[in-house]
Design a binder for these strands. Structure first.
Lengths: 225, 225
DNA sequence: CCTACCGATCGGTAGG
DNA sequence: CCTACCGATCGGTAGG
């Protein structure tokens, strides 16, 4: 398990990509090709011939599987958000009742999925304005649910006295945006493995919400500002 | 001063937009028009007729001021980054020698500029892949300088014992990305004024780096995890 | 600074 | 699933 290649391992541990097991093989090739092209060049910078060529087919063949180019983007964006929120909900549920363990679990899943799927992350970050109004509203609804998972956890922690912040909503956004950022620089074949990276982000998130434990209590000083 | 309209006040206090005082008036109209259009629809979703119409001129007239559509984007992106880094450097310099005051000043400027200029922020966040290689490298160099301003401040604070984190580089990225996110939701005419918002982000940033002061020391508990 | 226009490329479809 | 093609739109320019 620790001997498997780190990059291949990542998408197994954090399944947040566009692909689903029961996809038509040709549709899966289109989604993979489109995700790569759109992440690199943007939705309007990608044409249907690019997508077809990357998927090994003609541009006309795309329309046997998707109604339009915009339909492909909507599928990528929606599936990515659904995968993220679903996995985050499960992670929180499996973490038990301690808000500190729940926040750790949420950060681990959020960071892991964004590190494992930087293309989907980039699209969700930069291409949503190309969605039709209905798809856009749906994606935003999932994004709100993800934020609520974090916010409710933080509020629980505060009420139990294990977190100390009077702005849980801002702390939630602060942490989520910061964790999403890992997609921009993390490389699976780089110096730092994903578990180390996750541990660091958990530590930063705990500090942000003022977790009352070793992390924020070390080297106490009396020179209050 | 506190009686002036908050929205108009914002860009005065945080000058980070594309416009400069000595711009040709027609060039300024083009930059303003292009910034709005590109922030809304993306670079490839914006055509030169859109930009011209928003600026009250024909598309052909753009080429009296810019060499190409890509040249307009490069100008917007570069000027935005230069304004951000320059203002941040000054803010840090004027904050004195205390790393806590320096971090507060950096967060205030970074948050203020992104809140005051959400269009430039969106473009810097989502459209950089449309830049030519040279412009892209230049923008990234400025982004690295901004990160270094934060990282060096945090490292100073740690070495002086006023911050407590063993991962200053990750903390720096964490804070910068989180603060940049304010551009996505802050509205000058909303419920929370900018100074309150800045104060909250300063508080979150201080917690993130484990500032050893009242914020992270309140309600100490012994139930270490 | 505008009108008129250029060749190139776009998303999508007909027909097989 | 491919070839061939459609009308529409693109960035950019010539000429005034």
């Amino acid at each position: 398990m620790t001997d498997s290649p780190p990059a291949a391992d990542l998408t197994d541990r954090f399944p947040g990509g566009v692909l689903r097991g029961d996809d038509d093989p040709m549709a899966a090739r289109i989604l993979r090709a489109a995700t790569g092209a759109i992440a690199e060049k943007g939705f309007n910078g990608t044409n249907i011939r690019d997508i077809g060529a990357r998927g090994g087919m003609s541009s006309g063949s795309l329309y046997n599987h998707f109604g339009s180019k915009a339909d492909i983007l909507a599928t990528i964006a929606l599936r990515g958000m659904i995968a993220l929120v679903t996995a985050s909900q499960s992670a929180k549920a499996e973490a038990g009742s301690d808000p500190r363990a729940q926040l750790d679990a949420l950060v681990a899943m959020h960071v892991g999925i964004h590190a494992a799927h930087p293309r989907e992350s980039a699209i969700g970050n930069a291409e949503l304005h190309n969605l039709d109004a209905d798809s856009y509203a749906e994606v935003v609804a999932y994004r709100d649910r993800q934020e609520e998972l974090f916010t409710s956890t933080i509020e629980q922690g505060v009420s139990q006295g294990v977190f100390a912040t009077d702005i849980p909503r801002e702390a939630s956004r602060f942490i989520i945006v910061a964790c999403t950022g890992i997609a921009r620089w993390y490389r699976p074949d780089g110096r730092t493995d994903i578990d180390t990276m996750i541990a660091r982000y958990q530590q930063l998130a705990r500090s942000t919400v003022g977790e009352t434990s070793r992390q924020t209590m070390e080297s106490p000083r009396s020179d209050l500002r």
